[in-house]
């Protein structure tokens, strides 16, 4: 039996007995970043594939949400900071070794870009829209002309943003649950799937919905594979990794993880989407909401559980 106690009575808030320095702000920040990445990725992708006409929700309507949730996400990141008055220091340096740093920069780039994107569709969406200033009109016509260039940049940035939400966690070698290289791709796929869910919610065209449902189904399958892959990797890993996996296999997070994330957030919506594609009448709102809910739960659980895992000595 091995037991360790603090002789000097250490009991630092948010650190002892379990690390809990990141509260709800960070999972929400990661979630919103992932959803926005998904939406913008599809908007860019289908522009490049020349499907503007067939996919109105993907092109115009869903992207309206992107800049809003990106700004919200940055706001939640700001809320998490404890030395708030110094937050601008984040934008005085760029440190590639630090995911927090390049992630903040990517957000700084993709947020205005998403606004330009939405701006370029404003008149199409709202015919009464008027930019009021001549500069803005000029800028709009430039953006419309360069839409496919913008789409290229947006696709790349969206992928980086989506991966970043996972790498932010996976870069911490001190937290064995996070410290695995599949987390970046996993969060990216999960983000894209939630983005697709938003598009499904907004879309009214049958063609668009069917296509997005198919894509979403594929993403869910990949996500499930990544999750099993991650847990198998842990189980075949070192003592700390086995301990990390056991949080989900028999440990305190078993039920929340398998029921809310895997069953309700992935398997059930996948089943509903399959049924719908087969011609059954399923209100699209149900799988879409479930996917959005599952994605949020996933990030909450990962952030919360990861902080508990540590090296034992």
């Amino acid at each position: 039996m091995k037991e360790e106690i603090f002789v000097s009575g250490r009991n630092i808030p948010d650190i002892d007995p379990f690390l809990n320095i990141w509260h709800w702000q960070i999972p929400i920040y990661l979630y919103l970043g992932g959803v926005a990445a998904g939406i913008l990725f599809f908007a860019g992708l289908f522009t490049l594939l020349g499907k503007e006409k067939e996919m109105p929700a993907t092109m115009k309507w869903a992207p309206i949400i992107a800049p809003i949730i990106l700004v919200l996400g940055l706001f939640f990141l700001f809320l998490d900071l404890k030395h708030k008055l110094y937050f601008w220091q984040l934008y005085t340096t760029m440190r590639f070794e630090s995911p927090m740093s390049w992630g903040a920069w990517v957000l700084m780039a993709i947020t205005p870009l998403s606004m330009v994107w939405v701006g370029s569709y404003m008149k199409e969406m709202f015919p009464w829209w008027d930019w009021k200033f001549k500069v803005l009109n000029l800028f709009e016509s430039w953006a419309i002309k360069n839409r496919s260039n913008i789409a290229w940049v947006m696709v790349v940035l969206a992928v980086i943003l989506g991966i970043y939400t996972g790498i932010l966690l996976s870069a911490f070698n001190a937290r064995p649950l996070w410290n695995n290289s599949i987390l970046g791709p996993l969060f990216l796929v999960s983000g894209m799937s939630t983005g697709a869910a938003v598009i499904l919610l907004v879309s009214k065209s049958h063609y668009e919905r069917t296509l997005m449902s198919r894509i979403d189904l594929l993403l869910i399958v990949i996500e499930l594979f990544f999750i099993f892959h991650m847990i198998m990797g842990f189980r075949a890993g070192s003592a700390v990794q086995i301990a990390a996996a056991s949080l989900f296999v028999g440990g305190p997070f078993t039920i929340t993880f398998w029921v809310f994330v895997v069953l309700l957030g992935l398997l059930f919506p996948a089943l509903l989407e399959t049924l719908e594609l087969r011609g059954f009448k399923v209100p699209v709102i149900i799988p879409a909401i479930l996917i959005l809910f599952g994605g949020l739960m996933f990030r909450f659980i990962m952030v919360e559980a990861g902080q508990i895992t540590r090296y034992l000595y």
Binding site: I12, D14, I15, D16, L19, I21, W22, L77, D80, L81, K82, H83, K84, Y86, F87, Q89, L90, S98, M100, A171, F172, N173, A174, R175, Q307, R310, Y311
Partner: peptide, 21 residues
């Protein structure tokens, strides 16, 4: 101090829980 924004990343990254806010 004057460069720290209090994001908590370093607290997460330390395997020894040697840092605090």
């Amino acid at each position: 101090k004057s460069k720290c924004i209090g994001c908590g990343a370093c607290i997460q990254s330390c395997p020894y829980e040697a840092r605090y806010s």
